[in-house]
Amino acid sequence: MKIYGDIQSGNCYKIKLLTSLLGIEHEWIEVNILKDETHTVEFLKKNPNAKIPVLELDDGRCLSESNAILNYLASGTDLLSCVPFEYAKIQQWQFFEQYSHEPFIAVARYIAKYLGLPDDRKMDYESKQEGGHKALRVMEQQLQKTPYLAGNKLSTADISLYGYTHVADEGGFDLDEYPAIMRWIDLIQSEPKYIGME
């Protein structure tokens, strides 16, 4: 299988992390979004939405949206429960990641890290801080109760949220304010097959 992505993107990195944790063989194809490489005719055939990551299976079928890819690859493993309520809790956190977490933390990081915090984006950057801290507080509350987001074991919910949370400082979010999140980050980084962002 082939995975198209940018390793510095949290959405792409979480796929790379999952493949390492599960020992999934794949070909990683680096895509530069700043050079519009997601807008080529060839790429748009794989994902008309012009976004990474994209998983291309051996038979040519493609799957986009990072959490859909995570759950597909983790299907049948300990990282994705087949118990309906537990599965729904994992999805609950993944929807939270996409709608309440990423729009603030990932965007603030993008403006600062990828764009260099230009003057014309500073107001946009600052506007993301409140929402980002709100998302981190929700995570902190849960992680004070359970070691992982969906309970007592690592799941794709954690991998989904870990992608951007562990580099939230690059978007201006001080994680020292969130001791339970810091413990959770340490737990994930202690996984035997853990790999960091390259």
Rank of each mutant, 00 (worst) to 15 (best):
F95N: 11
Q141F: 09
T40Q: 05
K145A: 05
V167E: 13
Y72N: 03
I159E: 07
V83C: 15
Q8P: 01
I188P: 05
K35P: 01
I7Q: 10
E37T: 09
C62F: 05
E65F: 11
I15C: 10
I15F: 09
T165S: 06
P48Y: 06
Q129V: 09
E102N: 10
P103L: 12
E37P: 07
E191C: 06
C62A: 07
Y178L: 11
D36T: 05
G60M: 05
Y99D: 03
A150C: 00
H133E: 14
P84A: 12
H101N: 01
T19Q: 09
S66E: 11
V83R: 15
F95D: 12
Y194H: 09
Y99P: 08
H26V: 11
K113F: 11
A168I: 11
E30A: 15
I188M: 04
L73N: 02
Y72R: 00
Q92D: 14
S127T: 00
C62K: 00
H101S: 02
E42C: 03
Y87L: 14
T146K: 01
R137S: 06
K46Y: 10
A135I: 08
L63H: 01
Y110Q: 13
S75E: 08
R137A: 08
V107N: 13
L161Y: 08
R137Y: 05
F43V: 12
G131H: 09
K122V: 06
K14V: 09
Q94P: 11
G5L: 00
L70A: 11
A88K: 13
Q144H: 04
I181V: 15
Q129A: 05
L18C: 08
P48K: 07
K122W: 01
I29R: 09
W93Y: 08
A74F: 01
M182R: 15
I52C: 07
W184S: 05
T38A: 01
G76F: 00
Q189C: 07
A112D: 02
G131P: 04
K153E: 11
D78H: 08
E27P: 08
Q129E: 02
A108Y: 04
E198Y: 05
E130P: 14
A106I: 12
L161H: 07
N71L: 04
L73A: 06
L79C: 02
T40S: 14
E170A: 08
V107E: 15
F104N: 13
